[in-house]
Amino acid sequence: MWLSPVRHLPRIPSSYLDYSRHMPKKYVDRMKRTIPKKVFGGRFGAPDVVEWKIHPDDYVETGTRPWEQDMVNKNLERENRYSQANIGKKFYELKKEVSKKMDDEKWHIFVGDRVQVMVGKEKGKQGTVIKVSRDTSEVWVENVNCVLEEEQTGAEKFGIDNSFRWKEKPLSVVEAEVMLVDPNDEETCTAQWVISPDGSEYLRKSTRSGFEIPIPSQALMTYEYIQPEKYIEVSEKDTPSSIALTRTYVPKLATFAEEINEHHGISTSTRPHSYWY
């Protein structure tokens, strides 16, 4: 069998680049409320009956992250409605929406990229991506596709003059409303992930020209750091990298029981037999 000298296969950047990539899945699920309310197990081999807070099939992905306040309120409301329907024995139809999430291989747009709008009255306009939603395959472009929005809803009730501001609305990538711009010729292009010659990473290359389109540094930003190298360690909480990576294991020819004996100063004359097979 021919084995490649490099065993590690690089990951496609679109599979992990996201500003919330360090959010634990458990927390995200809790905020989505797609967690079991109660699991009825012990059914003698029959599958568990699971009662959900929000049924996973009922959850609708949106561009807003589940931990943002609006989304938390909406999900709690939905959870309440679902539970009321269950208690009241009412029929409750699950949404069962088809996911619009694109495959990692097909996704090429990141925060900080230059894109061009392909539809609507702003067709042909170019702008920088300020926000990306993988779940719905949508992109927000700076100062493009804006609507006038109230700055504070219900401000007139308190006798304050309401002010308005321009707010970006999402543009779908699945429906080809935006396209990536090749920085070499400033024209729209499709891109593809090509493994680099040394096989250490995936590069984003324009299909038309073959030139590499480097991933902008803004795409590396997360809640924790702007760039991974510039992460500021918290002295009381974070184990520094140098200490976390030190090898402290000392190999020793002894079984676990023997090591414990030695630690407590118990001397035994016999060693377990070893056999050759």
């Binding site: 250490s200 974070d238 184990t239 990298s241």
Partner: peptide, 21 residues
């Protein structure tokens, strides 16, 4: 050791892996 591991560990691991490969 502290309760968490610094995010710079990922960077260092990636650096070492690339050097070794």
């Amino acid at each position: 050791l502290k309760p968490y591991v610094s995010y710079r560990t990922d960077v260092d691991i990636e650096k070492r892996r690339k050097e070794y490969e």
